[in-house]
Amino acid sequence: MGQELLQGTLDLMVLKVLESMGPMHGYGIARRLEQISENLLHMNQGTLYPALLRLQQRGWISSKWGASDNNRKAKFYSLTKSGRKQLMTEEENWGRTAALMQRLLAETSG
């Protein structure tokens, strides 16, 4: 995967992580993203925060302060109902796009 994230991809990934892992703080989300991508995705971790704010403003995630594993004060993000719905739509869209791209690439190379 390239260095740059596709526009909107980060949003989808964050939503997916929150769906599968439950409420998480920013650092946790960043860690999780790196783990899943097996360090292929080198992300500027700072860009995560504007994305989190964006998702909150759209009402897809909510946040509240809580304590982390080692008892540090941290903000925890969780998926809202409309966020879940949004994730479903996005997943579907993404699946369609991916399938289309696959077909197209197979066609032209074959």
């Binding site: 971790q45 982390s68 941290a74 903000k75």
Partner: peptide, 17 residues
Amino acid sequence: HELAQEMRAHLEMLTEE
């Protein structure tokens, strides 16, 4: 203030890691 705190927490957790 919250933003500063959140980022500081993130950095500290990352540093510890």
